[in-house]
Structure formats: structure tokens, C-alpha cells
Amino acid sequence: MQTVLIVIHLMVVLALVGVVLLQRSEGGGLGIGGGSGFMTARGAANALTRTTGILAIAFFATSLALSIMARYGERPIDILDRVPAATGEQQPAGNGVLNQLGGAPTPAAPNTADPATPAAPAQPAAPQVPSGQ
């Protein structure tokens, strides 16, 4: 149903653009309006104005219908609900989606309370930058 309404909406849009472009300009912009055009009779102007109004109403109606269908229609599946867990086991409830994406594990901090664990190597001192004297 939504596809049919989209096709009708697109046809109304194309017809509305065509009818607006057929209407006679009243002048003003860049001085290129007026003169004898394709349809200059008063009856033709009334017909084009009425057609523009009808197409505008159809445009608004199809726009509202499409927006209502999008709001209350079938909800799409969220892509974040389909992310598989990094391992085969279930993740605890406190972990978010980013924890389920996987990647390199973070290294564990060394245990300083256990004397059997070797100490981490000391960080080298930052180089001294000479002052411009």
C-alpha cells in the first residue's frame, strides 16, 4: 500500500511542477515575464489555477498519508538489536552494544599485591627541551 501511495505522490509532484511551469508569469523577476505565451486566454488561466489547487490538495493529502503510515506502520528492526555477541556466551545485562562488537581485549593491570608478579618496566623520562637562551 505504501509503495502505491509513493507512486501516486510522485505522479502528483511531477504534474504539479508541470502545471506551475505552464502558468503565465506576471513579470517582475529578471524582466522576462509577460508577452504572449502558450496559454494566454483568461479561461486557460482559470483552468491552470484550478488544476494547481487540486494538485496541491492531492500533494498535501498524499504527504500526510505517507507520514501517518510511516509513524503507525510496521516498525523496522533496529540494526543494533542484530549485533551478535563477540563470544558464543551471553553477555551480562550491564554491558552495552559497544562491548558486544568485539575487538582486541584490554590488557589486565598487573597485581602489585602479589610479590611473584613481575613489576612493570619503568617509563622512560621525558626528554628535556632546551630553552631558547
Rank of each mutant, 00 (worst) to 15 (best):
A86C: 04
A86G: 03
G102S: 13
P84Y: 08
R24T: 09
G53E: 03
T87E: 08
G27C: 01
T117I: 03
L66T: 02
G28M: 03
L14R: 07
T87W: 09
L22K: 12
L21V: 08
A109Y: 07
L16I: 04
Q90P: 04
V83S: 09
P76F: 00
Q123L: 08
Q23P: 00
V97N: 05
L10D: 10
A113I: 11
A126C: 03
T117V: 05
L30W: 14
P92D: 01
A116V: 06
V19D: 03
G18Y: 08
P107Q: 14
S36L: 05
Q23G: 02
P84E: 06
G29K: 11
A44D: 10
V17G: 04
N111R: 14
T40N: 14
A122S: 12
L48C: 00
Q100V: 05
A58V: 08
G73E: 02
A61S: 12
G102A: 10
T106I: 11
P105N: 08
M11K: 05
T40R: 15
A47C: 12
V12I: 10
I68P: 01
L98H: 05
V83Y: 11
A122R: 11
T51R: 13
S25W: 13
T52M: 11
S36A: 08
A70F: 05
L22S: 05
Q123D: 13
T40M: 14
I54H: 02
I8M: 11
P110V: 05
P110C: 04
P105Y: 13
T117F: 04
N95M: 14
V19A: 11
I77G: 03
G53L: 04
I77D: 05
T51G: 04
F38W: 13
A113K: 12
S63I: 00
P124D: 00
A122W: 07
V83D: 06
A15T: 04
G43T: 03
L98A: 09
P76I: 01
G73P: 00
L22C: 02
Y72M: 00
I54F: 09
S63Q: 11
M69N: 01
M39Y: 10
G53R: 05
V20P: 01
G94F: 10
G29Q: 03
A85K: 07
G43P: 02
I32H: 06
I77P: 01
A61G: 12
P84C: 05
A15F: 02
E26S: 10
R75M: 02
A113P: 05
L98Q: 10
A122Y: 12
A86P: 02
A65M: 04
A120Q: 11
L101W: 15
G18T: 03
G35K: 06
G103N: 11
N46A: 11
L30C: 12
Q91G: 02
V17C: 09
Q91I: 04
T49L: 12
V12S: 01
A85Q: 06
Q123E: 12
V83L: 10
H9P: 00
I57P: 00
G43M: 09
V12E: 02
A109I: 08
E74P: 04
L14Y: 13
V97D: 01
T51W: 07
A109G: 11
G33C: 01
G88R: 07
T117W: 01
D114E: 11
A47Q: 06
A61Q: 01
Y72C: 00
G28W: 12
L66K: 01
L10P: 02
P105T: 13
G37R: 07
L101Y: 15
V97I: 13
N99K: 15
G94W: 12
